[in-house]
């Protein structure tokens, strides 16, 4: 186990290094123009451009530029080129919002997907199953920002059942916090409910024919107990792995669209807005921060998985 963990962590660090190189290349090398001019913004004087070029080392070779950039990102003294706000501070402010959204949505989609998937499998082939399957397919076919905008407009603005966007701190008022997040949670969860309920349904259908289920039935266990204790528990393993990976992916990118539509001001929205204005310092920091989060989550999931299922360690 120890060797596996060490190997996986080394691999994680390598991937993080690669991610940082790619981020650097995307924003400083691929664009077909001088990065210093771009960073200085419009109507910048020649001396400002020259100062930026010096500061970021754009007049030196690429490896030197890379090292300078990374130093700036990791010492955390970056600030936005337009608003002059410190980037680290903005990320710290946005992170609880992004995590609130992602954690709530993850719990919601898991719970609903278990209900739907199990019910669908028990009723396999009947009307309820087909209906839920179609529903799941509709769910995975809808862009989250579209359904989010419609929910926000009709349920929030027109009917006034829910607040029309905005965010309240959890520490301020937990109930109001949840009330403000119901619509974003639902919008974000819909897609995953579609996926997970279908995966769970097929896992349950596979498990139901296993010998140990027949044994449980032969022992005289009740149907409910068989489904929950034996079938569901065994069908959950692949889903729980997926859950960890998807949670990482949602924090690291999937939440951007939801945050933007509901104006939650999380890290994702900050990243998207900075990218849109090509505000290079926050873009570098947020992109790397989010990508690192994904890489870290993947490593954690792998290690947990190896801990639960020793066969994985051999791979």
């Amino acid at each position: 186990m120890g060797r596996f963990v060490v190997r996986r962590l080394i691999q994680m660090l390598l991937v993080m290094f690669a991610v940082s190189v790619i981020t650097f290349l995307i924003f400083n090398v691929i664009p077909n123009s001088d990065p210093a001019v771009r960073m200085a913004g419009r109507q910048a004087s020649e001396s400002t451009i020259e100062a930026i070029r010096k500061e970021w080392g754009f007049d030196k070779s690429l490896p030197v530029q890379y090292v300078t950039t990374m130093q700036k990102v990791f010492t955390g003294d970056l600030e936005s080129q337009f608003t002059q706000l410190p980037v680290g501070e903005e990320i710290r402010k946005g992170l609880p919002r992004t995590l609130s959204l992602a954690i709530g949505a993850a719990l919601l989609w898991m719970f609903v997907a278990i209900c739907f998937g199990l019910y669908s499998a028990v009723k396999a082939g009947r009307f309820a199953d087909r209906f839920l399957t179609i529903l799941a397919l509709v769910g995975i076919s809808m862009p989250v920002f579209w359904i989010g905008a419609l929910m926000n407009h009709y349920l929030g603005f027109k009917l006034g059942w829910f607040p029309n966007g905005g965010y309240v701190e959890l520490t301020e008022d937990p109930l109001d916090w949840a009330y403000h997040l119901i619509l974003p949670w639902t919008a974000l969860a819909i897609l995953f409910i579609g996926f997970y309920s279908r995966v769970l349904r097929s896992n349950v259908l596979d498990t139901i024919n296993e010998d140990f289920v027949r044994t449980a039935r032969a022992k005289g266990l009740g149907e409910r107990q068989i489904m929950v204790r034996h079938v569901l528990r065994n069908s959950m393993i692949p889903i729980v792995t997926l859950w960890g990976l998807d949670f990482g992916a949602v924090v690291g990118g999937g939440a951007i669209l939801t945050e933007t539509v509901f104006d939650l001001q999380g890290v994702g929205q900050y990243a998207a807005e900075s990218i849109g204005q090509l505000d290079v310092p926050p873009v570098l920091a947020t992109t790397m921060f989010l990508a690192f989060f994904v890489v870290l989550m993947n490593a954690i999931v792998d290690i947990l998985y190896a801990y639960l299922d020793p066969r994985i360690r051999l791979l």
Binding site: V15, A18, V19, I22, T23, I26, F27, I30, P31, N32, S33, R38, A249, G252, G253, G254, I256, L257, A271, A272, I275, G276, L278, V283, T287, L290, A291, V294, V295, N298
Partner: peptide, 22 residues
């Protein structure tokens, strides 16, 4: 694996903006 570990949307938006520039 490296492409995979980039969140699809972040990578897409980043490349989109970078390439559209010039």
């Amino acid at each position: 694996d490296i492409i995979w570990s980039f969140p699809v949307i972040i990578l897409g938006v980043a490349l989109g903006v970078a390439l559209a520039l010039g």
